[in-house]
Design a protein around this nucleic acid. Structure first.
Lengths: 342, 342
DNA sequence: TATTTTTGTTCAATCGATTGAACAAATATA
DNA sequence: TATATTTGTTCAATCGATTGAACAAAAATA
């Protein structure tokens, strides 16, 4: 049962009376090898169930054909969909991916980067953890000569290819819609300002309010980790405040779900008394009662484009231009903010 | 900025006037190397920012120190928690893990196995996809001499180490509890019978009913993929039937959530008119209104034990005994089945 | 002093595949 | 026929680290 002897090019060579190098060249379609030999070698390879030794060829070629993907967490539809699409594109191009998650922790992220560099991946495609402010480890990736592409959460200072959506514009879509629904007092459950995407959403929120002639109240911009509990806690806080908002724009769907729970528990009418909008178009937003309006980030496109950016770079190592691909956000209007529908 | 030259043992040797082999031995604490040399080598290694080349040592030693983990899907608390704990234990022992997901698809699972074998992982820890009935690919892992440990979803015929819970007993806990709540007509939204764990849950369900003197109705055992929609569809079906059950035991939490949604939409009183119990203790079960009773599978323990089983085996390659570790399930009683509380 | 043992290091082969150079044979050209 | 070109294969070095054997020097024993 146990057939542990893996065959090598040496074995094939022995069978056919050739040298290992001839076999190697035949398998790699070297022009100087005759078609007759190539066919014979390839048949023998199948006969012997030959599998190339990845380690040795990677060592020799200085190329592993492995790409590391680092995401904050995996149980989010957005991130797992991005990874799925990265994988799809890279597999077609002979690469395999290694997926790791930082769990939003800087220390874990550093450890994952070290592991990936150790196994000598050809590149890393990453979205940064919430905690990450020190970019030293990302510099390290570049200084080792490993390709780096960031998506969604990425900082401009790193000067690497980036794929994401226009967060500033997303906020405009959200606020304009809420204003059209006649909302006047719009609060924002925000992500942390030190992360670029959340900073942009806050900036867009403020500018869009001013554009519509509404006043920006600083105490209605509340930063958090955007976990379920954060959404619950902050929504309760908003309800308890002397002046209640009549709409809440949450920078993440999970926190929006928490907010929704609190609203339901307090028998607040949605969207009449309070409109609610989330961010990311997680699948559950269409399943809740009422369903939650949200912003579609085009996770499939992001994954595809990030993978292509990596391929582009690995195939043109001395390319100097940095690509920043910014996709158009799309507002998905559901029950939680649509006063006309009800 | 770009400091691409990675240093090797050769560089260290050159600096100290030694040979590469002396350096290698010094770094690996070979007994025949003097302490003086060891210290000098290790200092030079730090000075030169030396990182061992994983590929070359893996090639030479025939050992990658990489373990592949295959799970059906990653956006489930149970699986991601198992992976987290596998990683924790293995990292401490000098291994790194590569996590992949099958998305419950047999074809994807085969592809992932091929990838993992290609990068020559030292072992694979896996939970099988729902679709998988053909065990050929798992045989392949073993025949290549790669260690294999299964958890949760695993088949006995494969004859490999396994970690899971006692599914038969779980059903007894569930049914006994429902009976104690005075439920008489208990339906079972089941997983597919061809998968051992679901078969066991069904067997336990039947036996427990009989033990309590209740009649087993075959049309109240409905197999499915246990997705959210399956739960919704089947619950609706049960509500529309001439005789309604007064309790439903669902073999998965996601499907239980679907069932709960339908019950709420139909204004059925829970647990008075209908009690509901899920399986896996996914975090959301405690967040719903009402919260869902469920079975705790000890994901942390499973991950830890699976990793330890792998280590045990890799350290004793000629060990013949197969370990089957079966953990005790724990019933978590929440609002959806506790008639006394309300 | 001669011989054995211990210690510290170097030598050389190895893991498996790749690749430019070298070489011989076959074919084409002058 | 002599020379140039093309074709098919082998040779040998290489990627970087590891490891048993060999060797020389130092220390211990007879």
């Amino acid at each position: 049962m146990e057939n542990k002897k893996k065959s090598t090019i040496k074995d094939i060579a022995a069978v056919l009376g050739l040298t290992p190098s001839a076999v190697s060249k035949a398998l790699n379609d070297h022009p100087r090898i005759s078609d007759k030999t190539k066919i014979a070698v390839k048949e023998a390879a199948i006969q012997l169930d030959y599998q190339p030794n990845y380690l040795s060829s990677a060592l020799r070629k200085g190329k592993s054909n492995l790409v590391g993907v680092i995401i904050p967490r995996v149980n989010s539809h957005f991130f797992s969909s991005v990874v799925e699409n990265i994988e799809k594109v890279l597999n077609l191009n002979g690469y395999n991916i290694i997926m790791t998650q930082s769990n939003e922790l800087y220390a874990k992220e550093c450890q994952e980067i070290d592991t990936l560099l150790k196994i000598q991946v050809d590149g890393i495609i990453a979205s940064m953890a919430n905690e990450t402010t020190d970019l030293e480890y990302y510099q390290k990736i570049k200084s080792k000569g490993t390709e780096l592409v960031l998506f969604d959460r990425g900082e401009e200072e790193l000067n690497v290819d980036y794929v994401g959506i226009d967060d500033y514009k997303s906020s405009h879509l959200v606020i304009d819609h809420l204003v059209s629904q006649n909302c006047k007092r719009i609060a924002h459950i925000a992500g942390f300002k030190h992360i670029r995407i959340y900073k942009e959403r806050i900036r867009g929120y403020k500018d869009a309010l001013e554009k519509s002639g509404l006043v920006v109240q600083e105490n209605w911009i509340i930063e958090s980790n955007l976990r379920l509990d954060d959404g619950r806690r902050i929504m309760q806080q908003l309800l308890d405040a002397p002046e209640r908002p009549d709409a809440v724009y949450v920078a993440g769907d999970i926190a929006a779900l928490g907010a929704l729970q609190v609203l339901l528990e307090n028998n607040i009418k949605i969207p009449e008394e309070m409109a609610l909008i989330g961010f990311s178009d997680e699948p559950f937003t269409s399943l809740t009662q009422p369903s939650i309006s949200t912003v579609n980030q085009h996770s499939d496109q992001i994954g595809k484009l990030a993978a292509e950016a990596f391929l582009e770079r690995i195939n043109n190592p001395n390319k100097k231009i940095i690509n920043r691909i910014i996709l158009e956000p799309e507002l998905i209007i559901r029950q939680s903010s649509n006063r006309n529908l009800k």
